[in-house]
């Protein structure tokens, strides 16, 4: 197991700065590095990969004119979006309306601070890492409400309200399922959870299957995947946006930079969801041959691909049906899962 010092310490050592200053500089540089990595992934995903993937599902060509394989569309889109006019509609609730896009992007980025990405790329490793991730990720709900309420638009309002209802319905199952993982690993610390999954589970025909929690408890994994789709608001749970119903929900009134921030925030949220799934269920950065960070990124993208796949084939639920699924289905199932896990862990231990 590549258990090394957290990234800030490594950077501080490299720069030869010690003490508090070293911690601060190391932290800042490390955060900037990881932030850049995530934003780069988002930039690839938003204007390019998403279009390519959707096009593949729908038998079309997609962006292929600008640059090799259309990759330069990323630059073109960035310029296009940033050069648009930032329209501030009449009667918006100013501070709230302005803060919401920032908060949305920021809350998702913060989550990556405690995710171990392999090869020592790990900003911090607090003992309550898992709780921290869920705590910061759910700040996004606040941003959605602010955007929905602050926009002075009825569609935004409906979107904001839907977001709240949806968040309430999925957050509890999400945390409960994560709790079942904690029961296995016996720790809330992210590095511990990853380390616990490194042990071999079984050996099939000479290949050692690691005890990733996706293998140990596939039921919890499936539940978490669904809850995660709800969290990131993708089909069949893209109800707060629902472009064909309520135009674009909470983001209806945003344009230009603010729109970019919201868009960015959504994608970082998908990636954060992927990172949490990778860490909790897929052994974090573990994998053969390739360096851990690459495995980690590959796992995140696999989850991203899954959201896009679901989007191509699954209809959107109605808000009341979603609430039903959340409270009557997911909550009960995740409680059952927690109970079952507790019993199993209790018996084995």
């Amino acid at each position: 197991m590549l258990q090394t010092a957290p990234l800030p310490d490594t950077i501080a050592d490299l720069l030869g700065i010690g003490g508090t200053l070293g911690a601060v500089v190391g932290g800042l540089v490390g955060a900037a590095l990881i932030g850049t990595l995530m934003l780069t992934m988002t930039a690839v995903a938003g204007p390019w990969a998403k279009r390519k993937i959707t096009a593949a599902f729908t038998d079309r060509y997609a962006v292929n004119r600008v640059g090799p394989a259309g990759l330069l569309i990323i630059a073109a889109d960035a310029v296009r979006l940033l050069s648009k006019e930032l329209i501030v509609p009449e009667g918006v609730d100013r501070p709230a309306w302005d803060i919401a896009p920032l908060l949305l992007a920021w809350s998702a980025l913060l989550g990556f601070a405690v995710i171990p990405m392999g090869n020592g790329i790990h900003l911090a490793d607090p003992e309550i890492g898992l709780v921290y991730v869920f705590a910061v990720a759910s700040i996004a709900s606040l941003a959605l409400v602010m955007a929905g309420y602050g926009s002075n638009n009825k569609y935004s309002m409906l979107g904001g309200l839907r977001a709240v209802a949806q968040n309430l319905a999925y957050e509890i199952p999400l945390v409960l399922i994560a709790a079942s993982v904690v029961l296995f690993s016996g720790s809330l610390q992210m590095s511990e959870i990853v380390a616990a999954q490194a042990e071999p589970l079984a050996s099939v025909a000479g290949v050692t299957v690691p005890s990733w929690y996706a293998f140990v408890n596939p039921f919890a994994f499936a539940l978490f995947m669904i809850a995660n789709l709800m969290e990131v608001g993708r089909n069949p749970f893209d109800i707060p946006e629902a472009p064909t119903e309520i135009v674009a929900g909470y983001q209806t009134e945003y344009s230009s930079v603010y729109f970019v921030l919201i868009y960015l925030g959504e994608f970082i949220h998908i990636f954060l969801g992927g990172a949490i799934i990778a860490t909790l269920f897929l052994g974090g950065p573990a994998g053969p041959v390739l360096p851990g960070i690459l495995w980690f990124i590959a796992k995140i993208w696999a989850v991203f691909l899954f959201t896009q796949w679901a989007r191509s084939a699954l209809p959107r639920l109605r808000i009341d049906q979603l609430i039903q699924v959340g409270w009557k289905g997911m909550l009960v199932l995740s409680l059952a899962n927690l109970l079952l896990t507790a019993v199993i862990v209790g018996v084995i231990a």
Partner: peptide, 23 residues
């Protein structure tokens, strides 16, 4: 039914056929 839907779209994604034209 949901799995069948998802299988159908995945089949299309993998077969690589396009019906649009590069005009």
């Amino acid at each position: 039914g949901m799995l069948k839907s998802m299988a159908t779209t995945m089949k299309h994604a993998l077969d690589g056929e396009k019906f649009t034209v590069q005009y």
